[in-house]
Write a protein that binds this DNA or RNA. Structure first.
Length: 275
DNA sequence: ACAGGCTCCTGCAGGC
DNA sequence: TGCCTGCAGGAGCCTG
């Protein structure tokens, strides 16, 4: 499932391939996809626009669009991949994957395709002349400072795992990197967020940023069907210490990794290493 | 205000 | 072999 490192990898890949390219035609094949903006409005706003840049905000891919490459951005196309969403840059003759909901034909001949079997993804178009630019609700995990990080969890009664997943606190952390950073910080996922010591919060802050940066370097984690903009898998799944390793020995102490449910999510931790 | 649970959706694994 | 059930989870929504 795409989280911050996967979304960053995809956004960078798409940016490298489409920057400066113009959308010639927008096609929406499904009207059941939960669009935040209707397909008709999106098509009207997308056609003729130029991709100025593509970047990541939280778990969202934000495409800055303008009349020309250099001018001011006039709109944003915002893609949220949900669990199984993929944003691919292909040649027009590339085989059409099942559940392809959107195709953007570009002047260069390339095509951008949005594929999403489970339909948890969201597509939105923002007109910057009429409304505000997209902004994440929570703090940016890669740049949040140690002090800001600690404040996020102050007096919070929910489990630290649930707090990490709360996008209005931190934008971009999902199930894999929540589990992996808690392991590296030596903190049990069910601990009450507001009861973590400052030392534990500092360790978690360092662990989270290290895990996310390392995963970005490796192109993200490929579990289920994640691929980047070119259809290439990532390698961070090979570095997982706990995620999806139930009953397997901990890589640090040998204790079998335990799987529990926290905040309705499968949660993996080492009873030996995490307190 | 906050926390927890339900729901959407499809593919796949496991059990009988 | 084939069917059925349950599980995977991001995030919006509802409830207590």
């Amino acid at each position: 499932m795409p989280e911050l490192p996967e979304v960053e990898t995809i956004a960078n890949g798409v940016n490298a391939r489409v920057q400066g390219d113009r959308i010639v035609e927008a096609w929406f094949g499904s009207h059941k996809e939960p669009f935040k903006t209707s397909p008709a409005k999106q098509a009207k706003g997308l056609e003729g626009r130029v991709f100025q840049s593509v970047h990541r905000t939280g778990k969202h891919i934000v495409c800055e669009l303008g009349e020309t490459l250099a001018g001011p951005a006039t709109s944003q196309w915002i893609v949220h991949l949900g669990m199984t969403g993929r944003l691919l840059v292909t040649t027009p003759d590339a085989e059409l994957a099942p559940h392809t909901h959107t195709r953007l034909r570009l002047q260069s001949g390339k095509e951008i395709r949005f594929v999403d079997p489970r339909r948890f993804g969201r597509l939105e178009l923002r007109d910057l002349q009429r409304g505000a630019a997209f902004a994440a609700a929570g703090a940016e995990p890669l740049t949040v400072t140690r002090g800001e990080f600690a404040v996020l969890f102050r007096r919070r009664k929910l489990a630290i795992k649930a707090a990490l997943l709360n996008q209005s606190l931190l934008s971009g952390v999902g199930n894999i990197y929540a589990d992996e950073s808690l392991f590296r910080a030596g903190v049990r996922p069910r601990r009450q967020a507001g009861r973590l010591t400052r030392a534990e919060l500092d360790r978690l802050h360092v662990a989270l940023q290290q895990v996310l940066r390392h995963a970005i370097q490796l192109g993200g984690s490929s579990v289920s069907d994640y691929v980047d903009a070119e259809g290439v898998r990532g390698f961070f799944q090979l570095e997982h210490y706990v995620y999806s390793r139930e009953n397997q020995p901990c890589r640090q102490c040998g204790t079998p990794i335990r799987k529990i449910i926290v905040a309705g999510r499968g949660t993996h931790y080492c009873p030996g290493c995490q307190r």
